[in-house]
Lab assay of single mutants.
Amino acid sequence: TTFEIRVGDLRITLHNADEEEIRWAEEALRRGIHADEILRTLEERRR
Rank of each mutant, 00 (worst) to 15 (best):
T1L: 15
T2I: 15
T2N: 15
T2Y: 15
F3T: 15
F3V: 15
F3P: 15
E4Y: 01
E4T: 02
E4H: 02
R6H: 14
R6Q: 15
R6Y: 15
R6T: 15
R6G: 13
V7H: 04
V7N: 02
V7K: 00
G8P: 00
G8W: 00
G8H: 02
G8K: 02
G8M: 01
D9W: 01
D9N: 07
D9G: 04
D9I: 12
D9S: 05
L10S: 11
L10D: 08
L10W: 04
L10C: 06
R11N: 09
R11F: 14
R11K: 14
R11P: 01
R11S: 14
I12W: 03
I12Q: 01
I12F: 04
I12Y: 06
T13N: 03
T13C: 09
T13H: 05
T13A: 02
L14Y: 01
L14T: 01
L14E: 00
L14I: 14
L14K: 00
H15K: 04
H15A: 04
H15L: 04
H15G: 03
H15S: 06
H15I: 08
N16R: 04
N16K: 04
N16V: 06
N16Q: 05
N16D: 08
N16W: 05
N16A: 06
N16M: 06
A17H: 03
A17S: 05
A17M: 04
A17I: 05
A17D: 02
D18F: 13
D18H: 10
D18A: 07
D18W: 06
E19W: 13
E19L: 11
E20R: 08
E20I: 11
E20W: 14
E20V: 12
E20F: 12
E21V: 06
E21W: 06
E21P: 01
E21A: 08
E21R: 02
E21L: 08
I22R: 05
I22A: 14
I22M: 06
R23K: 11
R23C: 06
R23D: 05
W24K: 02
W24H: 03
W24A: 04
W24Q: 03
A25D: 00
A25G: 03
A25L: 11
A25F: 05
A25E: 00
E26N: 03
E26A: 09
E26P: 00
E26F: 09
E26L: 11
E27K: 08
E27N: 09
A28M: 12
A28P: 00
A28N: 07
A28S: 10
A28L: 09
A28G: 08
A28Q: 10
L29Q: 02
L29T: 03
L29R: 01
R30P: 01
R30M: 10
R31M: 13
R31D: 12
R31W: 06
R31I: 12
R31V: 10
G32W: 03
G32Q: 05
I33L: 11
I33N: 05
H34G: 13
A35H: 06
A35L: 05
A35M: 02
D36F: 10
D36M: 11
D36T: 10
D36P: 08
D36S: 09
D36L: 13
D36V: 12
D36R: 05
E37T: 11
E37M: 11
E37Y: 07
I38S: 00
I38K: 00
L39V: 05
L39A: 03
L39F: 14
L39P: 02
L39Y: 14
L39R: 04
R40D: 10
R40L: 11
R40I: 12
T41Q: 13
T41D: 12
T41Y: 12
L42Q: 02
L42W: 02
L42T: 04
E43I: 07
E43L: 06
E43P: 03
E43T: 08
E43M: 12
E43F: 05
E44T: 08
E44P: 03
E44V: 09
E44W: 04
E44L: 09
R45I: 10
R46Y: 05
R46G: 06
R47Y: 07
R47S: 13
